[in-house]
């Protein structure tokens, strides 16, 4: 049972990891995107459409996954572009825009689920491409089951997070992005193209988050459509960004812990439903504690980006 628990935890952690890596990239540019739940819903719609199309065209597993990813990124990225246009060009309040995107995205997703239900479209078959183990048939020992039996997208999530961590920490691009998020006016004066950085990070981050939604529907639920769940997972992804102190590297471990806490209640026997509800608080409570502790120590490295939530207008004094 323990092996099964860890295996499932790793599987679910990928959803949080996609969401939080995307949101970290966005927040690094000084934009608090509360639309992540909505963007993940959009990505889920795109991913499912893409996967179904590729499956019906009789494509191989690899192509099905690739097309699903591209569609999920397109759908998520489109919402990211909308968010970026509102908050960067039109300089609207970020919280307000983000909440609107969440409302809209969740609405579109719910509507789409109803529509698919009425039309009798199912994604069980298309999802087989995603649940198929990436490394083929592996042994049944505990190590192989825990770490090598997952679908392709689980490993893709980790690869993306590692790349994001390296880019943010080690490259000039990452440094410039951090500068934009900390003090856009100074970055602008230093010759960094602030608007460009903001747009790219908003769209790219949203596209990555979009894959998370598609992954949840096509891998975790094996293609069965559940309205409402992705939204909750999106909020947890936003929480994970804080938990990981804005570092995708820590996010890999953080997402595992979140995944574990998320599915643990299903594996614990002998407790009543009420206690299970209390267990669900843990990820949020831990995030609250982390948030308070980082503000308590007030160390510079662990703070949110200084310009988080503020619009940048060059002519402001």
């Amino acid at each position: 049972m323990f092996v099964a628990l860890i295996t499932q935890a790793i599987r679910f952690s990928a959803v949080f990891l996609y969401g939080s890596t995307g949101e970290t990239i966005i927040e690094k540019s000084g934009h608090l995107n509360l639309g992540i739940p909505g963007i993940m819903c959009f990505g889920a719609v795109g991913g499912c459409l893409g996967a179904n199309m590729a499956y019906n065209a009789g494509m191989s597993n690899f192509m099905t996954i690739l097309i699903a990813i591209i569609f999920a990124m397109l759908f998520g990225g489109a919402m990211g572009l909308l968010y970026g246009w509102f908050t960067i060009t039109l300089r609207c309040n970020q919280n307000v825009t983000g909440l609107t995107i969440t409302t809209f995205g969740a609405g579109v997703f719910g509507f789409w689920v109803t529509l698919m239900g009425e039309q009798g479209v199912r994604f069980y078959r298309a999802s087989r491409a995603f649940t198929a183990p990436m490394f083929g048939e592996v042994g049944s020992d505990w190590f192989s089951t825990m770490f090598l039996s997952h679908g392709t997208l689980v490993y893709v999530a980790i690869i993306i997070a590692v790349i994001a961590a390296i880019v943010l920490k080690k490259t000039r691009t990452g440094l410039s992005l951090t500068a934009v998020g900390e003090n856009p006016a100074a970055a602008d004066a230093a010759g960094i193209k602030v608007i460009k950085y903001k747009y790219v990070s908003c769209v790219l981050g949203a596209a990555i988050s979009g894959i998370g939604g598609a992954f949840y529907l096509l891998d975790c639920t094996r293609g069965s459509l559940e309205p409402g769940v992705i939204e909750g997972m999106g909020w947890l992804a936003v929480a994970l960004v804080i938990f990981s102190l804005w570092r995708p590297g820590i996010g890999i471990f953080g997402s595992f812990i979140f995944g574990l806490l998320y599915i643990a209640p299903n594996y614990i026997n002998g407790v009543d439903f009420a206690t299970k509800e209390i267990l669900k608080i843990i990820p949020y409570a831990v995030t609250v504690v982390v948030l308070i502790v980082i503000s308590l120590f007030n160390k510079r490295e662990t703070q949110p980006p200084a310009a988080l939530g503020l619009s940048y207008f060059r002519e402001d004094r």
Binding site: T100, G105, G107
Partner: peptide, 17 residues
Amino acid sequence: GESYPSIMTGIFFFFII
């Protein structure tokens, strides 16, 4: 479906924002 009003309010808010 139940989610339809959310789409409409979303559109409305986008315009107003």
